[in-house]
């Protein structure tokens, strides 16, 4: 079972991603509500997968992604973006994000992406 770290500043999004993941046999090992905590948790938990929101206080998802990839170039980070964030997603991909989903996404969409890393 793959271990996943969910990063999002919105508790609603964390909950909704968590429910989807648990339903599909992923193991949610941790949650973080900003980039800074995300980096700390990543280093501590070493999850197989990270879902990373982009717009967050303290440290954005992009900065956190860069930090994580710096420490673990093999990190599987999936960006969770919103419409209109094309530029940021592009930057994320350049910085080593493995893929992304766009809010609002369906259960299928999310699982399709994450299944690639199962």
């Amino acid at each position: 079972m793959k271990n996943v770290l969910i990063v999002d500043d919105a508790a609603f999004m964390r909950m909704s991603i968590k429910m989807t993941l648990q339903k599909h046999g992923f193991n949610v090992v941790g949650e973080a509500d900003n980039g800074k905590v995300a980096v700390e948790k990543y280093l501590e938990l070493r999850p197989d997968l990270v879902t990373m929101d982009i717009t967050m206080p303290e440290m954005t998802g992009i900065e956190a992604l860069k930090e994580i990839v710096k420490n673990d170039p093999q990190a599987n980070v999936i960006m969770v973006s919103a419409m209109g964030q094309e530029m940021l997603v592009k930057e994320a991909i350049i910085s080593g994000a493995k893929s992304f989903v766009v809010k609002p996404f369906t259960e299928d969409t999310l699982i399709k992406v994450l299944d690639k890393f199962k």
């Binding site: 500043d9 919105a10 609603f12 999004m13 909704s16 717009t55 919103a82 809010k103 609002p104 996404f105």
Partner: peptide, 8 residues
Amino acid sequence: TIKGSAAM
């Protein structure tokens, strides 16, 4: 955040 959650 509201945009994203409401859309979901």
